[in-house]
Computed example of a mutant assay.
Amino acid sequence: MFRLIRTVGVIVGYAALATTKLQHMKKQKEKLPTVHMQDTYISLMAKKWAGRILDSADVTVEVTGHNINDDQPVLFISNHEGNFDIPVLVHAIEKPFGFVSKIEVKEIPFLDEWMMQLNSIYLDRSNRRSSLQMIKDGVASLKEGHNLLIFPEGHRSKGQGLQEFKAGGLKIAKSAGVDIVPIAISGTAAIMEKYNSRRMVPGHVKVQILEPVPAAIFQDHSLDEVGQLIRARIEDALHA
Rank of each mutant, 00 (worst) to 15 (best):
M45I: 09
T188W: 04
I103T: 05
K174S: 13
G187L: 05
W114C: 02
P152R: 00
S131M: 12
G187D: 08
R198V: 08
R125W: 07
K194Q: 13
S141L: 08
W49Y: 05
L17C: 07
K136C: 07
M25S: 09
M192P: 01
Y122D: 06
K166Q: 15
G9A: 08
K174F: 13
I11R: 01
P87N: 03
L75D: 04
A184C: 07
D70F: 11
S120E: 02
N67W: 10
K48R: 15
K27S: 11
F2W: 15
G98N: 01
E62W: 09
V90C: 00
I11G: 02
D58H: 15
T40N: 12
T40S: 15
K174N: 14
V59N: 00
S56W: 06
V100Q: 01
Y41A: 03
S120P: 03
N127V: 07
G227W: 04
R199A: 09
D112V: 07
M192H: 05
S197F: 13
G9V: 09
S56F: 04
L118Y: 13
I42Q: 01
I230P: 01
A176M: 08
L223N: 04
I180V: 09
V139H: 11
I234H: 03
A16L: 14
N147W: 09
R233K: 15
S186L: 05
H80E: 02
A15I: 06
P212H: 08
D112K: 15
T34A: 10
K171S: 13
Q72L: 12
K102G: 04
R6Q: 13
S130N: 12
T188G: 05
K158G: 04
E107L: 11
A167V: 12
T60G: 10
T40H: 13
I180R: 02
V139L: 09
G187I: 01
T60N: 10
K174A: 13
R52S: 07
P73V: 05
Q163V: 06
K31D: 10
S141K: 15
Q117T: 10
P152H: 06
S78F: 00
A15V: 05
P87R: 00
S222L: 11
D179L: 06
A92P: 05
A16Q: 08
E164M: 11
V105N: 05
I150F: 05
M45K: 09
I183R: 02
L142S: 03
M134D: 06
F97Y: 09
D112Y: 13
F99Q: 00
L54K: 01
N147K: 07
V61Q: 01
R129H: 15
L75I: 04
I209G: 02
I42E: 00
D124K: 07
A15K: 00
L229M: 14
I103E: 10
S186M: 09
G159M: 10
E235K: 15
A190T: 10
V10F: 04
M200P: 03
I77R: 00
